[in-house]
Design a binder for these strands. Structure first.
Lengths: 344, 344
DNA sequence: GTTAGCACTCTGGCCTTCTGAGTGCTAATT
DNA sequence: AATTAGCACTCAGAAGGCCAGAGTGCTAAC
């Protein structure tokens, strides 16, 4: 447990370093308004803090820099407990204004977030499997090709082009669509394959010629793995950070960000609420000197998606955490309202 | 006009520099297999070439580097006339395999192209205004919101969510959709607004209550400016180029690439076929030491889209030009076939 | 016309020096 | 006993000097 004085000095060091990116020395600290101690005294405190592992030197006669342990302490004990709801209004306006199209909202949020913070924002879109089928449509283009369209109750639209095998006639296709629409309305996307196999298959068998073939085609058209929606905003923001001056780092970072699977993997967390991952706490080597703050937004009790900000370990934790918290709350609220409206 | 010897030396310099990125000296040239002249002779030729403006020194006692004029000459007189159709098979397989979904094809092409060349590829998707409306659909989600879906004969799907104003009833909405589908089928997207105003408006007036309001809403839902589809592949490839060692350059470049409008603007060219833009020939300051090779692909006589590769001025022009040429031909062919099939 | 030879130039790597910021410790002060 | 002033010491990074190497231009010989 830190003494009050130690905590004060630690805070000052972290705040100063977050702002300036330079190691902070005893003299500079003693000059701050809320410090009335001499540099020498502060040196003693700093020696203690270093021994405890909260700060470090970059070389034997340099000023101090917060260690990861230091940031962790700061996040857990300083910013965590005193979370204000600042910036709520911006987020609220954003979410309320644009809610009709969920995907666009998510995308725009990513942009706003990265503009506001100057870090890189990553948003994992809603898992559409949790939403329900509203309508299914097949539009023939030519004799042998068509596009299948699937609309969910959240206003999401998926489409796939596919070839119609010669064995399936236009009337058969129409019948199939009718059957599907009749039976599948309101079924969650996750359950679609199951329901098709148990209920629809037998129906098709009765009405449709060569149903087996049709079934195969439908399946391949709709039940391929759904791509995860991933939005990244302000990828270039990090370039302005002073710690990003090494070309090798830049390369490693961008190479990693190009790999969608890896980014998704990074964000996926079972945890609700805000989660802060500092430096080496991160999964991947490439971002071992970054910090990642994730917040999830919900749809009922199901987790739906994740919002995250990625920046240097020297990150404005207070600001970022407040912001993400506000946005995730707003999004959860908006989703709840939407859901309710949909029920009626 | 260059003498044969001068041309030979120029070629060697350019080829060597493209490969090594280092200024090339007389001694190195004289050692090449296809050169049987001494370094001193070559120095004389080089002095001539420099006087003519085709090569430059980086400092008074350095080797020579091609100037932009040099690259231009090389492209126009060396690679242009002797274009082989190499790599055709890769491109053909790519295009043929995947043609069903045009957008995915374009996206994948961008990837393949950047992988194959290690430069950044940019593809401007097909201008969907040239294609024709196949079907229009409105799917109501709740009492006051719906999603409008528009399918073109090329299999492209656009969708927009919108709010239904209280004044418009469900039956009216249905009527409107019926009218629209009836009248608009086969009309090119570009002509939609016009046809709606001249033909459909009067019909709506007859059948639909409060048609004016409905009309406004439809218009806003469908005839907003269509976003241009832009695919960029291998953004990080350029990081591996040695000329990209200056952080400022990197920043300027990425900042520019984030601005979609600017990128689109860069690619838009009235010209058919292959176009090479070297260094300062480019529109924007940010890429004044890059080269851009663009190729357009067609749909009938209408230009549809553009494929481009962006790399350092020290670019493998021969390879890139051959590749782009092949791909653009394949895409034009594929589009032609598709179009024909659609007619029948 | 071509080539060998030589003096000259410039870059980039390496070493040294020097300054300024910052520390740790000791002794004096409150 | 806690705080502070004073001082010697350390280290990074900037500035300058010093080469070696690659390359050139020019002259004179082939």
């Amino acid at each position: 447990m830190l003494t009050e004085r130690q905590l004060l000095i630690l805070q000052v060091i972290i705040d100063d370093f977050i702002e300036s990116a330079n190691p902070v020395g005893s003299r500079a600290i003693s000059k701050k308004d809320d410090i009335s101690l001499s540099a020498a005294t502060i040196r003693n405190v700093m020696a203690d803090l270093e021994e405890l592992g909260y700060i470090e030197k970059t070389h034997s006669s340099s000023g101090r820099v917060p260690s990861e342990k230091g940031y962790r302490y700061y996040v857990d004990n300083v910013v965590g407990p005193h979370m204000e709801n600042g910036n709520l209004s911006i987020m609220r306006d954003l979410v309320r204004d644009d809610f009709i199209d969920f995907e666009k909202l998510v995308q725009k949020s990513a942009e706003v977030l990265s503009d506001l913070t100057n870090y890189t924002s990553i948003i994992l879109g809603p898992e559409i499997f949790e939403t329900k089928l509203k309508q299914l449509q097949i539009v023939p283009l030519t004799d042998h090709s068509a596009v299948a369209i699937l609309v969910t109750d959240s206003g999401h639209v998926e489409h796939r082009s596919f070839t119609i095998p010669a064995e399936i006639s236009a009337t058969d296709l129409e019948k199939i669509v009718n059957i599907l629409n009749d039976r599948l309305n309101g079924i969650s996307l996750a359950r679609l394959p199951e329901v098709i196999t148990t209920e629809v298959l037998s129906l098709m068998q009765m009405y449709v010629h060569d149903f087996e073939k049709s079934y195969q085609y439908l399946k391949s058209a709709f039940f391929k793995e759904q791509p995860v929606k991933l939005y990244i905003g302000g990828k270039t923001n990090l370039l302005t950070q002073p710690e990003f001056n090494d070309i090798k780092k830049i390369r490693a970072f961008y190479q990693m960000m190009e790999n969608e699977d890896q980014v998704v993997n990074l964000l996926k967390t079972p945890q609700h609420g805000i989660k802060v991952t500092i430096g080496n706490e991160n999964k991947f080597e490439e971002i071992k000197d970054f910090s990642l703050i994730t917040a999830s937004y919900q749809f009922g009790n199901e987790q739906m998606g994740t919002i995250a900000l990625l920046g240097p370990t020297r990150m404005e934790y207070r600001k970022v955490i407040t912001l993400l918290n506000a946005l995730s709350n707003e999004m959860t609220d908006a989703l709840y309202l939407w859901y309710k409206n949909n029920e009626t």
